[in-house]
Each structure stands twice: as structure tokens, then as C-alpha cells.
């Protein structure tokens, strides 16, 4: 017992390197039950990491097999996708285009609507109304996405077809616009809920500061609360991007089933996720090029999501406020 106490005094240099308190605890004095619990907690924590590593490992392993047969440059620059056709084509760009277009349409809906809903909930809504509206909004995120898919296909797209009919444009029964719009609606609750949390976390003192200067409610919201919550709101947007990139059922049902290299949201197209979902039904022989293509596409999706997440994280750090 004397040793750890004497240490700081006898070795002043060591005080600069802060020893974690935990390390000073004599392991033998910890009861066995504590150590079992600690080990159990470690296992629980490690399992999450382990599963992630396994998933990425599988993706990379199978994708490496795929890229042995298909040059990676052809994969990334080819504009036609059909690995299981004869002759096979291995350009992933059509799938990436489909993914980006549906994601963009979804974000164009989810970001403004979600932000405005959050602003209203956090700053304008009376307490009682907020407490009843927020759970309902969050319920929207509990609706299975396949339901949203059919909502897009059987409700939203027919309306769009009628509206485009007025301007003399014949819109197909599957298109990225309809799928993207509904995907956006699906994501609104995520953006709204997280942004609202961020805005409500803005300290009262900042709002009072703005009001005391003579600002109106709207000026306070837009000029003080929103910028102060930007870090948290960015986090909400990142989640929205991830959700949109990874969303599968809506695009499978409503966006169409053919890879189509176009940036026109009025066309039908297939996304990365929709390709995986439509092909990975078990009738591809393990080890075939078509089977491995799934993993290559999955890896592409993972890299894209990672890219947006890292970018978003960087943005968050940049706008982080320590009030």
C-alpha cells in the first residue's frame, strides 16, 4: 500500500505521465465475481467489434476473388452492369448512379422537411403538443420499409404520373423520383428527432442572450439556435445519408429492376442495394463470378457509406461548439 502513495513524491517526473487509477488497483484484492462480470462485459463489447471485423473480412475476401477476374479499373469505370449475363459486363457505375440519384432525391426531401419540423418542435410547439407529436413522428420510422415501397409504387408514383401527364411527359411506372421522395419521407423522422435533440440542447442562456438583444423568435432560431446546434444537426444529416444509401426495400419495389446508367431521376434504375437484394436469392452457385459480384457491390456500398460518414464526422468536428 505504501508504494503507490510514495511514488508521486519520490518520482516527480512520473507525475507528468498520468497513470490510470485503475492500474493501481491490486488485481488480487478484486473479488472473483467482479472479475467474472468484468470479463463478461469485455466479451459483450468485443462481440460487436468482432462481428464488424467478420463482415468486412468476408466482403473483402470475396471481393478480392472477384477483382482477380475483373480488373478493378473496369469495375469502377464501366458503364454497363450485368455480371450474370452473357456476355458479362462489370461496370458498377450504373448502380452507383442509381444509388446517388435516389439518395439525393431523398435528402432533398428529408433535410429541409426534417430541419423545419425539428425547429418547430424545439422552438415553436407548445410543450403538450410537442409531447404528442414527437412520438407519432417517431412511429413513422417504425413503419416497415416494404410498406413505404408499396406506398411509393401504388400511391406516389401514380400521382406523379398524373402530374407529369399535365405537362405532356409520360412517366414510367417505376422511377427513381417516386422511390426517392418516399425514402425522404421515411428519413424525415430521423432527421427531425436528432436535430430537435440538438437544438433543445442549446443552452437557455444563448436564447436569452439573443432575445435580450431584441431578436424575434425567428431571428433567435435562425441566427443563434441553429448555428449553435449545427454539430448535432450535421450528425442527423449524416445518419440520413447513411440511411438513404443503405435503403433497400423501397428502391427494390419502386425504382425499377434494371441497371441504368443515368442521372435522370425520372428514369427507372437499380441501386447497389437493390442489385444485391434481387440477385442474392440463393440460386447463384457459390464461387461463381455472379456470386462474388455481390460482395464487390457490397464493398462498394460500404466504402461509400464510410466516405460520407468520415466526411460528416470531419464537418461535425469543424462546427463543434463548446458553449
Amino acid at each position: 500500500m505504501a508504494e503507490p502513495i510514495a511514488q508521486p513524491a519520490s518520482a516527480p517526473q512520473a507525475s507528468g505521465v498520468s497513470t490510470p487509477v485503475r492500474a493501481r488497483i491490486d488485481r488480487r484484492s478484486v473479488p472473483i465475481s467482479e472479475r467474472v462480470i468484468e470479463f463478461g462485459l469485455f466479451l459483450a463489447g468485443a462481440s460487436g467489434v468482432l462481428v464488424t471485423v467478420l463482415i468486412v473480412g468476408t466482403l473483402v475476401y470475396e471481393a478480392v476473388g472477384y477483382f482477380r477476374e475483373v480488373p478493378i479499373l473496369d469495375f469502377l469505370t464501366g458503364t454497363s452492369w450485368g455480371p450474370q449475363f452473357v456476355p458479362a459486363s462489370h461496370g458498377v457505375l450504373p448502380l452507383i448512379a442509381g444509388t446517388l440519384v435516389t439518395t439525393l432525391v431523398a435528402l432533398l426531401v428529408a433535410v429541409p422537411v426534417g430541419t423545419i419540423v425539428a425547429l418547430w418542435l424545439s422552438e415553436y410547439a407548445p410543450t403538450k403538443l410537442r409531447e404528442s407529436v414527437k412520438p407519432v413522428l417517431e412511429l413513422l420510422s417504425a413503419v416497415p420499409t416494404v410498406v413505404f415501397g408499396y406506398f411509393a409504387l401504388l400511391f406516389v408514383i401514380p400521382i406523379l404520373q398524373t402530374m407529369f401527364g399535365w405537362v405532356g411527359y409520360e412517366l414510367g411506372g417505376f422511377n427513381m423520383l417516386g422511390a426517392g421522395l418516399v425514402m425522404g419521407i421515411m428519413i424525415v423522422p430521423y432527421v427531425a428527432s436528432l436535430s430537435e435533440d440538438a437544438m433543445r440542447a442549446v443552452p437557455k442562456s444563448l436564447r436569452e442572450g439573443a432575445y435580450a438583444m431584441g431578436a424575434t423568435k425567428f431571428q433567435t432560431c435562425v441566427q443563434v439556435v441553429f448555428p449553435a446546434a449545427l454539430s448535432g444537426i450535421t450528425a442527423a444529416y449524416i445518419l440520413a445519408v447513411s440511411r438513404a444509401l443503405g435503403e433497400t426495400m423501397i428502391v427494390v419495389v419502386a425504382a425499377g429492376g434494371q441497371p441504368n446508367f443515368t442521372m435522370d431521376p425520372l428514369q427507372q434504375a437499380q441501386t447497389l442495394t437493390a442489385y444485391i437484394a434481387s440477385v442474392a436469392k440463393g440460386d447463384l452457385p457459390v464461387g461463381s463470378i455472379g456470386y462474388r459480384a455481390i460482395f464487390a457491390v457490397g464493398l462498394t456500398l460500404l466504402v461509400m457509406t464510410l466516405f460520407f460518414n468520415v466526411g460528416g464526422h470531419w464537418l461535425r468536428q469543424r462546427y463543434k461548439e463548446a458553449y
Binding site: 442562456s205 436569452e208 442572450g209 435580450a212 438583444m213 431578436a215 443563434v224 448555428p227 458553449y323
Partner: peptide, 18 residues
């Protein structure tokens, strides 16, 4: 707001805007 345009306030904790 008419009142606050003429009477200003400094708070307990410094609360500059971000």
C-alpha cells in the same frame, strides 16, 4: 421587443453566441 431594443442585458455566465 420594443422594450428590449432600449434596455440591454449582461448575464451571469458569459454567453457569447457561437
Amino acid at each position: 421587443i420594443t422594450v428590449r431594443m432600449r434596455i440591454s442585458m449582461v448575464f451571469q455566465k458569459p454567453n457569447p453566441f457561437p
